[in-house]
């Protein structure tokens, strides 16, 4: 039985059936000043897939994630996210693309003028949810990352690991179909990063597409998944 399934998954028809969430086609990215961050990048990420993005710092991991989130646009080639070409996307349509994405940043980008609850509330306010529904969702998200008891705390009073988890709660509260995490375990010790990887795994299990960048190759051994290895802006086989 298992053999038959695995044979079937290698069948070309099956590959066509899988919805492509993210598709890079000969992507080049140059920054002003001539620095070439990405060179001739082509790959696809299917719906519900979990992909690690590895490479040294400066290899272009952050740039790649920014291209998916349309924070940067490619200089050459095309980046297609959920069937939309980010290059030809009108700026008015950009917010609606981003609502499908959950972004997790290495530096968290939390707002210190409000408590944990209100930080997670922000994406829902942007989408215009009513108060009761929002509160429910915020608490569910906080519960998922184990911060329900800290909802009144200001992010500044949270530890590094807790801040990272709060950032994750904010990214998932809107139930995005794609989660992008830039070095989510970069500044954390082993125990905390383990915790966060387990959280990611649980999202993967409910069908969220995940792209996680990391320079810690050890994670790959503990959480086997497909990996894209970047070296000086190019994809390594």
């Amino acid at each position: 039985m298992l053999k038959r399934i695995s044979r079937w998954t290698q069948h070309s028809l099956y590959k066509k059936l899988i919805v492509k969430m993210i598709k890079f086609n000969q992507v080049y990215k140059r920054y002003p000043g001539g620095h070439e961050a990405l060179r001739n990048l082509s790959f696809e990420i299917a719906e519900g897939e979990m992909v690690f993005l590895t490479g040294h710092s400066g290899a272009g991991k952050s740039t790649l994630l920014k291209l998916i989130a349309a924070i940067e646009r490619p200089n050459g080639g095309s980046v297609i996210v959920k069937g939309q070409n980010t290059k030809s996307l009108k700026s008015a349509a950009l917010p609606y693309l981003r609502r499908n994405l959950g972004l997790i940043f290495q530096d968290h980008k939390l707002l210190f003028d409000r408590n944990a609850f209100d930080n997670v509330l922000l994406p829902l306010q942007i989408c215009g949810y009513d108060h009761r529904e929002s509160a429910k969702r915020v608490r569910a998200a906080l519960d998922k990352v184990g911060l329900l008891k800290r909802e009144k705390a200001n992010p500044i009073a949270l530890s590094g690991g807790e801040q990272q988890r709060l950032c994750i709660a904010r990214a998932i509260v809107n139930r995005p179909s794609i989660l992008l995490a830039d070095e989510p375990t970069g500044n954390l010790d082993a125990e905390y990063s383990e915790e966060i990887m387990h959280i990611f795994k649980s999202f993967h299990q409910v069908g969220v597409t995940l792209v996680v960048s990391t320079h810690d190759e050890g994670i790959l051994r503990r959480f086997p998944a497909r990996a894209l290895h970047l070296k000086q802006g190019e994809l390594q086989p």
Binding site: S91, P95, Y96, R98, L103, D113, N174
Partner: peptide
Amino acid sequence: EEIEVSKLIGATNGF
């Protein structure tokens, strides 16, 4: 910062 973050998580310019 708030504006930047809001843009990142899908706020329209109107918002």
